[in-house]
Amino acid sequence: MSDIKDDEKEILLDHDYDNIQELDNPLPKWWLLTFYGTIIFSVFYYAYYELGSGPSLSEELREDMQVVEAKMREADRKAEANIDWQALAKDPEALAVGKSIYDKNCASCHAAQGQGLIGPNLADNYWIHGDGSMPEIAKILKKGVLEKGMPPWQEILKPEELQATTAYVYNMIGTNPPNPKAPQGEKIEL
């Protein structure tokens, strides 16, 4: 038999299972309130979102994306307002930023010095898409070349980062590092 305290004798049930006995304490109040609370909340929650006027997850996403896209457009507009490509191409700070972004994101396909690997050689004088000018390079970086496996970077890199990377890649042209991938595309004049 269990070890029963004096004050428990009244609520001890007349029963035992393999010497296990049971008391019949009332349900704790806070516990009941928690239970009822979650039930009431749930009823209202379901009614609002699934039967009433609550937004669907797709609608919530659409609203959130509008906010994000507005921020993007605003940042792009500011960054592109008075861009001086010539100055940027010589700006050592921008080139340092460009290099770090290139090493992290681009080198796996275009190789460390731009000599080409999975993607084309960037350091020769041949260019497949566009004319190798900075605005054209920036365009490819932003939009990508989907059919060739070049991803678009405009939603990943910030506008300043895109411009810095553009400057860095522009400076690679014609550096002709060792072990190049064979030229592809049109020869360009700089």
């Binding site: 393999d18 296990i20 049971e22 008391l23 304490n25 349900l27």
Partner: peptide
């Protein structure tokens, strides 16, 4: 529900709670 009352040699706290929490 078997081993705690056995090991502690104490009665289960609330039979009523057992019923309510089991079914819910």
């Amino acid at each position: 529900y078997y081993f705690i009352p056995k090991a502690a040699n104490r009665p289960v706290y609330s039979y009523r709670l057992s019923i309510v929490h089991f079914w819910s």
